[in-house]
Design a protein around this nucleic acid. Structure first.
Lengths: 206, 206
DNA sequence: GGATGTGAATGTCTTCACAGCT
DNA sequence: AGCTGTGAAGACATTCACATCC
């Protein structure tokens, strides 16, 4: 069960969403073909993805919705909620703070940091915006695995390094730079301008 | 020059960013090794990526910054600005509206739509929030290639279909669903909760 | 000497196709 | 009969390594 393709992990998260919907609809069993249709892939791909972790289905029948849901939540590490900290109290940070999708999936923002004295001390949803200078001190008291970085590109690398040496193990990076960090740290980038640029490319070739 | 890997196109957009920085710093020539360092990849990868589109470098020297910048902007279709429309005037929509990265890369929001009567008619940055019911009428008057969809999952598929039949050719989708659309339409998904879930997975296996 | 450009080799992911359960 | 589970084949992407040129 070593070395699962990243693309597989992403699809598992999609399958999980559809399983939860199906479960709400009272469905007991689901086929790889149905999961595939909703996940934008093929039934063979679904079976292969799941087979990395064992065999959950019954031949001739499909997969039991409830059991598979539980197993996927377990595989993805979503059985217990995750605390995350948010670095950067700008517009995008604000949107993320209030984004219902995070809470729904068990991620709760435990602290917000900024370096702007005008923001520090104010509150969002009752949550204090703290001085980023206190990052290390706070993380020593309350270790946190996941940080969301929503600050300008110029500051991102430096802050990321501080996060890592303070014990953060995973970073969701919205700054449009490639962070250079040890391989032991998981980094995922969200670069919205870059997505638009790839769409622009597609428009020129199609 | 057919069938370029998507991963290559994404890296080209990254290279472009670093080229522009280097150019601002007065650098005249840049090696594949330097581009690689900043793009988080290898020099061989950089050369391979660029070689899909021709040979721009001088052996022993590297790539001319100015010429390569221009060529990449051309390849990515960024020589002229792009109008985009924004569907959904919620918190994330607001953040995108004010996101400086879009304007910097030549993307300007030309119209915003929502279906909430309380929002319709108000203005963001002087830009009117329009009734999504007028989408087709407006697109007939002002055809637009790119739409950014920032609405709840339940409404996304239906609106996406309307966009496509009104002539939209590329969609940046923030709704956490897999849109099912003709292959002729370019779709890119940004799913922030899903990114957190893949990080959660990484935490459980490392 | 130094860095590109590129076929060939390797590695990774997806699709096929069918044996094996239920 | 229906649908999973999975080796094998195929497609795709990355890395190697070296001839080529400035």
């Amino acid at each position: 069960m070593r070395k699962i393709p990243e693309s597989t992990v992403r699809r598992l998260a999609l399958y999980l969403r559809y399983l939860e919907e199906s479960s709400a609809g009272g469905q007991v069993t689901i086929s790889s073909a149905e999961l595939a249709r909703r996940g934008g892939t093929t039934s063979a791909q679904v079976r292969k993805d799941l087979s990395f972790f064992g065999s959950f289905g019954k031949r001739g029948l499909g997969y039991p919705v409830a059991a598979l849901t539980g197993r996927l939540r377990e595989i993805l590490g979503l059985k217990s909620p995750h605390r995350v900290i948010l670095i950067g109290a700008g517009k995008v940070g604000a949107a993320l703070m209030h984004y219902p999708g995070f809470a729904e999936r068990g991620f709760s923002v435990a602290a917000i940091y900024d370096r702007d004295p005008r923001k520090i001390g104010s509150r969002w949803n009752g949550l204090l915006i703290r001085d980023v200078r206190h990052l290390e001190r706070d993380l020593r008291r309350e270790p946190t695995d996941i940080a969301i970085v929503v600050i300008p590109a110029t500051a991102a690398q430096q802050v990321a390094e501080r996060l890592v040496s303070a014990g953060v193990k995973a970073i969701l990076n919205f700054a449009p730079v490639q962070l250079v960090l040890p391989d032991s740290v998981a980094v995922r980038n969200v670069n919205m301008a870059l997505e638009l640029e790839t769409l622009s490319y597609d428009l020129t070739v199609r």
